[in-house]
């Protein structure tokens, strides 16, 4: 456990050296928050209580989405792990007495931890300067939100770990990365909140793992979901399924590596 804590701390430090890049990205996240808010305000003007949200909820949602982009990597994409698979360095990693999935999970949590503050706080502050946002009403809601974000990070890692491992079979990750970007953008509620998705599309979207990334933490933040048990069960359930699938795929990959000799 100490080792994994060290890996996470190291990743956090490593990412915190790219300050200018983080600053420049968070600036754009904030700008996009305003633009998305503009569109949603127009929509809620036409339909005041659409999806159970009011205008303040919708505006807060826009900035919250922008704040969570990097912590839960909404734009998808693979881990640096793919590079090690492509170069064959992975065979070294698989022979280390450290769990491969655990290693990368710790690394990713370190990254997400830095992103939470460097990329998460500025869009919300920027939004709060211009609009009145809906903040959690009690410390308990903040705590519930924190738990939901942590679970969202696990789900996000679970998805991206699976995508990374496909390189074992596909050799080029650009195609899958593209597909993962689209599904993640659309089904997370990033483009339009899932509460607005009409009919069956909405029902299905609410059940997919991407709903755990932004929509659920946002609903907890806005105080729209207080049935924490359900929320956590949904997010935790997807995290468990994805991580287990990742384990299985790691084992298959390892066997394949042994059979083919690397």
């Amino acid at each position: 456990m100490r080792l994994y804590a060290w890996i996470a701390a190291y990743a956090l430090r490593r990412y915190s050296t790219y300050r200018v890049a983080a600053l420049s990205a968070t600036f754009t996240n904030t700008i996009f928050g305003f633009m998305r808010a503009g569109v949603l305000i127009a929509l809620w003007h036409a339909r005041p209580s659409l999806g159970g949200y009011d205008v303040t909820d919708a505006v807060t949602f826009s900035f919250l989405t922008q704040a969570l982009i990097e912590p839960v990597r909404i734009f998808g994409g693979s881990l640096d792990l793919t590079e090690r698979i492509r170069t064959g360095d992975i065979s070294i990693d698989l022979h280390r007495p450290v769990d491969l999935q655990g290693w990368w999970l710790a690394d990713d949590l370190g990254r997400a931890g830095f992103a939470l503050f460097s990329r998460g706080v500025p869009p919300l502050l920027g939004g709060a300067l211009v609009f009145s946002l809906r903040w959690p009403s009690s410390p308990a809601t903040w705590a519930a939100f924190a738990g939901s974000v942590l679970l969202a990070m696990l789900v996000s890692f679970g998805l991206r770990y699976l995508i990374s491992l496909t390189v074992f079979w596909l050799h080029d990750d650009r195609g899958v990365n593209g597909i993962s970007l689209i599904t993640s953008m659309f089904f997370s509620g990033m483009i339009v909140p899932l509460v607005v998705f009409p009919g069956r599309l909405g029902t299905v979207a609410q059940l997919l793992p991407w709903a755990a990334l932004i929509q659920m933490p946002a609903d907890v933040f806005l105080g729209r979901r207080t049935d924490l048990l359900h929320v956590y069960a949904f997010q935790g359930g997807w995290a468990a399924v994805l991580l287990a699938a990742g384990r299985l795929l790691t084992m298959t990959a390892r066997r394949r590596l042994v059979v083919n000799g690397g």
């Binding site: 790219y18 200018v20 890049a21 600053l23 420049s24 990205a25 600036f27 754009t28 700008i31 996009f32």
Partner: peptide, 8 residues
Amino acid sequence: DGKQAANS
């Protein structure tokens, strides 16, 4: 390192 800011 300012590419992302220019994206705005």
